[in-house]
Design a binder for these strands. Structure first.
Length: 492
RNA sequence: GUCCCCAUCGUCUAGUCAGGUCCAGGACAUCGGCCUUUCACGCCGACAACACCGGUUCGAAUCCGGUUGGGGACGCCA
């Protein structure tokens, strides 16, 4: 069987957004499953809008996701000669023709057609110009574009889509589309096909927004006398108002970079993306990389578009709840050493990392991460909500401060007393710390909860958290004692 | 306007190709409850959908037709 070759061809006119990432992911999954190759091709023929920054963003986004490619990045502009050679071939064999209509004329015609509610396509004014007319216009210096000459045939043109089935349309519906600009630069429809042919692409997995392009490109393949690759048009990702998601209208929430910067685990995000438009036909929703590569199939990609369900202005659900849920799942269940590495990056960014965490204090470090991960949503939480576990300059949340501390002024005596007892303890263990805390509350004839919750607030700054005595042992005697003694500061 | 695609809970979806086992299953979210000295996890429960109208059939979420709705495309962008 011939090698499968797939490609991801973004145009570098903005960051990598989740729709693009999902397209890349599906191509990657299929390539990996079939032992084929994935090619990254930057389609930068729109020189006005392509930027270096965008190229970097796309490459970094793919890297973060872990979507690796076997060839590239290739740059479409590097192959301009190939594109033009193909255009010449088409012109010579009569499959293309020069069009001298000006942009202004075409624009006027389009507007008129729109107003009259008529079809918007090109009216083929220049399709049957005589050689003399062409020579005259050229002599007069009138610029021209090259248009593809859609064959004059009755009946339908079509192809078999791996996801949607047979797609057909009448030849008369296809426009004579432009393949070379008046400035001599080739255009997408042509470049894309020429590159796919040169790169020996066997499967084209792309969004349904390309469906009309595909019809035209099928004609190009035919004119270039090359067999068709397999086409698979994925459903689009829409917003909650069912509009196509885009950088322009949705901002950072749809950028892959946003998820990296928000503390998502790369594979968790891939897992989420994979399920947005595909399912194995069962109830499984967590897949390891290997499982997903094995289970993925083009045939089981949904036909209908999926909605990216993010809620604006909700701090807890700042993006699609399912994405957060899947991230939480990985946060809680993934290998602790692996998670330790991810958290390490976060700590470093906040200047909270100590090299000892990788050496003599490694066990303690991983134990800490393991203790607190259950309540977190993203990697960011380790340095925000979990700051007290790694530093002394953490903030005390106002709510527990009022509820658990300020409400009981006597704590200014009780907690330092507890600190004294903890300091003298022979063994600073789970059992001992709990025994002493309960003993003290007994003596004071108060509920243990008062001491425990006050301690939680003073030691971690948080209203909620793991079992209190686990926290004490994990944070360590020295820090605990100090924080308990400093309780008076909070009343100042 | 023309062409193409799509249509199951709020969202992601299973079931549709091979009609009955589906008065439609799972997950997220939401709301209760249990657990917990806190919170989360976990567990239990509740809410909630076959767009509509015809047809075929003993029987339709499933097949056919139409309607409606949604999306996409219609560029000297990609």
């Amino acid at each position: 069987m011939r090698e499968t070759r797939l490609r991801f061809p973004p145009s570098p006119t903005g960051y990598l957004h989740i729709g693009g990432a999902r397209t890349a992911l599906y191509n990657w999954l299929y390539a990996r499953q079939t032992g084929g190759k994935l090619i990254l091709r930057i389609e930068d023929t729109d020189t006005g809008r392509s930027t270096e920054e965008s190229i970097q963003g796309i490459i970094e986004g793919l890297e973060w996701l872990g979507i690796d490619y076997d060839e590239g990045p290739y740059f479409q502009t590097d192959f301009e000669q190939d594109h033009l050679a193909a255009a010449r071939k088409l012109l010579e064999k009569g499959a293309a023709y020069k069009c001298f209509c000006s942009k202004e004329e075409l624009e006027a015609k389009r507007e008129a057609a729109l107003a009259a509610k008529k079809p918007l396509g090109y009216d083929r004014t220049c399709r049957n110009l005589s050689p003399t007319e062409i020579t005259e216009k050229e002599a007069a210096g009138i610029p021209s574009v090259l248009r593809f000459k859609v064959p004059e045939r009755s009946g339908n043109l079509g192809y078999d889509d791996k996801i949607l089935g047979r797609i057909e349309s009448n030849y008369s519906e296809i426009d004579d589309f432009v393949i070379v600009r008046s400035n001599g630069k080739p255009l997408y429809l042509l470049c894309n096909v020429v590159d796919d042919i040169r790169d020996r692409i066997t499967h084209i997995i792309r969004g349904q927004d390309h469906m009309t392009n595909t019809l035209k490109q099928v004609l190009l393949y035919e004119a270039l006398e090359v067999p068709l690759p397999v086409f698979a048009h994925m459903p689009l990702t829409l917003d909650t108002k069912k509009a196509k998601i885009s950088k322009r209208s949705h901002g950072e929430i749809v950028a892959v970079q946003f998820y990296r910067d928000s503390g998502f685990i790369p594979w968790a995000f891939n897992n989420f993306l994979a399920l947005l438009g595909w399912s194995a036909g069962n109830d499984q929703e967590f897949y390891s990389k290997e499982e997903l590569i094995k289970e993925f199939s083009l045939e089981r990609i949904n036909k209908s578009s999926a909605i990216f369900n993010y809620k604006k202005n909700d701090p807890k659900f700042f993006t699609d709840p399912k994405a957060i849920f899947i991230n939480e799942h990985y946060l809680r269940t993934m290998d602790i050493a692996e998670l330790g590495e991810l958290v390490k990056n976060e700590l470093k960014k906040e200047d909270l990392w100590h090299d000892g965490y990788d050496a003599d204090k490694k066990d303690r470090y991983l134990q800490t991460v393991d203790l607190i991960r259950d309540r977190f949503h993203t990697l960011k939480d380790f340095t925000s909500l979990g700051r007290a576990y790694f530093a002394d300059d953490f903030a005390i949340d106002e709510k527990p401060l009022a509820k658990n501390v300020l409400k009981f002024p006597e704590l200014q005596k009780w907690l330092p007393e507890l600190a004294d007892r903890y300091e003298k303890l022979a063994e600073f263990s789970l059992e001992e710390t709990e025994r002493v805390a309960r003993e003290l509350s007994d003596e004071l004839a108060i509920k243990p909860g008062i001491i425990i919750n006050a301690m939680r607030t003073v030691v971690t700054g948080q209203l909620a958290g793991p079992s209190m005595f686990d926290i004490l042992v994990t944070i360590g005697r020295e820090r605990v004692v100090q924080r308990l003694r400093d309780v008076g500061k909070l009343f100042a």
